[in-house]
Design a protein around this nucleic acid. Structure first.
Lengths: 141, 141
DNA sequence: ACTCAATTGCGAGAGATTCGCATTATCCCT
DNA sequence: AGGGATAATGCGAATCTCTCGCAATTGAGT
């Protein structure tokens, strides 16, 4: 939610918040919209640099931060490595096997009853997207 | 489970696995057993160094790793900062407010129905202790 | 005591991310 | 179109957390 469903929509959002449209932003958004994958800042930088070799990794980080503040993307931690980024309009939970690293994307509905108990027991509204739920996949159990 | 309920029990476990009883291990275990808190490696090092100033941070990390392999302690990630360590015999889930940082410890039972759905839908056995569940606490909602 | 392997202290290194700063580029206003 | 304010960039250095290599030390069985 929040977010934007197209590159131009995202750029509009940037503009409306006093930001400027730069080519690194355009390239980064293109990389992000290109696939629904979970990619690290480094991977995104590599993709952007195919078209614009001078875009620096620190610029990627700064733009990722800004796009996250604007609600266009979110980042998630799937394990001990670097964070991964993806579009905010396809948020979901993550189950990651501690043994083999396999990742399963889960619809929010699977967290519904946890959300309810956390709310009634602690007044806490969960956001199940940010950190993965670890465990063992079928094969590794 | 796994674990050990006393310092001497933990040291026995170390010994039985071919490890040696050193004073830094004893001091570290004392710090860990001293309180049920969630403490970072750095905090534990500071505590240990009150009694034994020469114990190096890297020694703390190595001993924490070993104690975790033996099942005496576990580490959890409660946010973007450093990992926190605590005794394995008091594992629990963590709800952390994204706004104010407040942390709530939750009994495993609250994850029971999520565990059941993850198992039946994906054959996945969850371990809800490692990464915190983010969200908003009552005050910040 | 003696020996051998486990452990330690120390500093350097690695991985991910952030920061400072001078330079460049975008956008708004004539 | 031209100019000025300021957002954004490139670059390297710094930060934070944790890991590693290595020589020196120490614990524990004989």
């Amino acid at each position: 939610m929040g977010g934007a469903t197209t590159i131009e929509g995202a750029l509009d959002l940037v503009r409306r918040h006093g930001g400027r449209i730069t080519s690194s932003r355009r390239f980064l958004l293109r990389a992000l919209f290109d696939s629904e994958g979970h990619r690290t800042a480094e991977e995104l930088a590599t993709e952007v640099q195919v078209q614009a070799p001078d875009v620096h990794l620190s610029t990627i980080y700064r733009n990722l931060d800004e796009l996250e503040r604007l609600g266009v993307i979110v980042h998630a931690h799937l394990g001990h490595g670097p964070a991964t980024y993806h579009l905010a309009n396809s948020v979901h939970g993550h189950f990651v096997c501690e043994e083999c690293g396999k990742m399963i994307e889960a619809p929010d509905s699977i967290f519904a009853s946890l959300a309810k108990s956390a709310q009634s027991r602690f007044g806490f509204s969960i956001n199940p997207h940010h950190f993965a739920m670890l465990g063992r996949c079928r094969e590794c159990s």
